[in-house]
Design a protein around this nucleic acid. Structure first.
Lengths: 293, 293
DNA sequence: GTCGATCATGGCCGCAGCCTATGCGATCCG
DNA sequence: CGGATCGCATAGGCTGCGGCCATGATCGAC
């Protein structure tokens, strides 16, 4: 039963019988038969078929939601017993918004020190992709904004607050200033994150609040690319302080705090809200609590 | 896998391989083998054996907790799809504290009117037995006190408030009074619920608050038995107003509100806190919300 | 020591589940 | 318009899991 649900989840993700079968390690007829049996035992059609995959039925969507919880709980059960035997082992998949990447080590380093047999995979993702990944079991947990856009039903542990600095080339006129206003920021030629990033939406709001619309000449979903452009001296950017500090270590970039107003947003750990937690997640939440206090 | 977990849950409940096997509809060797396989796949010992069942290991207890959630979720999945096909059918098992039994129809009647194919089993239980039953899947939901003793992790929907009246025989001296104090109640010869009932503990507190200790000559876990004793004219009792109203319909019992102080406790629906809810529970919670508002 | 209760073990069988091979409809392309 | 390709379903055969029965092993009671 659980195996069939896993095949169904794979089918919903891949939207293709053959690829889904490959993903779970069976042949296409096996997966096809499993889906058929699932439909028979539940008594409802789950998939629209017409010589190819054509999406889930409404009932299929509801089954998918429950199936993901079931499979996650079954994995947690196995994982917990393995942790009892061999200590905490395995891989933690952590989705992180790009602007929080400079500070992610503050969480992972003590976590890994306490759990040396654990491997961590850090994936740079947008905040919405993090929430989607947590829902679909792609991610174990995420680090994203807690106080800006709605999160849905997740566990939250605040880690730090993020405030913003203007990133400019070392020799730029504004580089020597003690602070700048958002109006001054808007006057600079900017390169910013793309609109699918929540950080960009936050910056947009702050700029419009200052009475100007953001029209950056260069956009990227990579903060590295932004820094590279700023280093040419032709653009400035707005980045969190941790990122500014990281880029300012070299001699070619400088940053200035943005005041008037000096806003900040809360960034923290989010995880599926389903107790009891799998042991890996319990350890991570524990570490996050320790870090927050 | 799920089948084996169900066998394990049955074993934990029956504490006997043979009876557990009978409960799930398999033979004893089949269940024995299933438990063994579960231990092998999880890699931990789950039960202490010594030519007979000797309890669960600590790991077994943890597996039991997760297994109950898994099995409940699997049942919810099947139930939800059956509800999609044939509407809401099945049996709702509802645990109710004795003093709330007179008012349980306020919830079940509109619920059954809206879901005519559902059957309801109402079980009189102590508040702690209700919480245990919800945890071990014996009960789908319960009606108990919300504001007196801790409930643990459950969904709560308040239904009504319970206040207390003195129940006496129709010709008793206090029968004609407009109200009595708790001190006067304590002066009467009382018959009360047994100490495992939360109502009794509430009454105890109220009596001790009035400066006296409750020393009832007659105790019972049945409010009917209490009423029968009160009807003899030799005892009085303390019961919620709904129960008093029910007993006062005949001519041989009367009740008087107890004031000074006029306390009341909140009574409501409790259910396992695990979204999404099974369809039966969702319908019941929906009905309770409607009743509360 | 004997007996009964309780759980484990071994042998046997049926069916579920997986595979390979193939069929069939839809789509694409020359 | 005909052939090639893609995508899923179906058929048939094999393997192993999971069920049953019969029996063995162990322990406590008497």
């Amino acid at each position: 039963m659980i195996d069939k649900l896993e095949m169904f989840i794979a089918l919903a993700k891949e939207r293709h019988f053959g690829r889904a079968a490959e993903a779970v390690g069976v042949t296409q007829p096996t997966l096809s038969s499993a889906i058929r049996q699932l439909e028979d035992t539940l008594g409802v059609q789950l998939v629209f078929r017409g010589s190819r995959f054509q999406g889930l039925t409404p009932e299929g969507e509801r089954v998918l939601d429950r199936a993901q919880r079931l499979v996650a709980d079954a994995r947690a059960l196995r994982e917990e017993m393995r942790a009892v035997r061999h200590g905490l082992v395995g891989t933690l998949r952590l989705g992180v918004i790009p602007t929080a990447l400079p500070r992610v080590a503050e969480l992972t380093v003590p976590f890994l020190a306490r759990n040396p047999d654990v491997r961590v995979t850090i994936l740079s993702r947008t905040s919405s992709a993090i929430l989607a990944g947590i829902g679909s079991l792609d991610l174990d947990a995420g680090i994203t904004y807690l106080d800006n856009e709605p999160l849905g039903r997740v566990t939250q542990v605040p880690l730090f607050r993020e405030s913003y600095r203007l990133l400019v080339a070392a020799g730029a006129p504004l580089a020597a200033r003690a602070s700048v206003s958002w109006a001054e920021v808007a006057a600079e030629p900017l390169c910013l994150l793309t609109g699918d990033m929540q950080n960009r939406r936050i910056v947009n709001e702050l700029l419009t609040a200052a009475g100007v619309v953001a029209a950056p000449q260069v956009e990227s979903n990579s903060t590295i690319a932004l820094a590279a452009h700023v280093a040419t001296g032709r653009w400035a950017s707005v980045v969190p302080e941790a990122l500014a500090a990281m880029f300012s270590r070299g001699a070619d970039l400088a940053s200035v705090p943005i005041s008037a107003p000096a806003v900040s947003h809360s960034v923290g750990l989010v995880a599926p809200l389903r107790e009891p937690y799998p042991p890996m997640l319990a350890a991570l939440l524990d570490e996050a609590q320790r870090l927050a206090s």
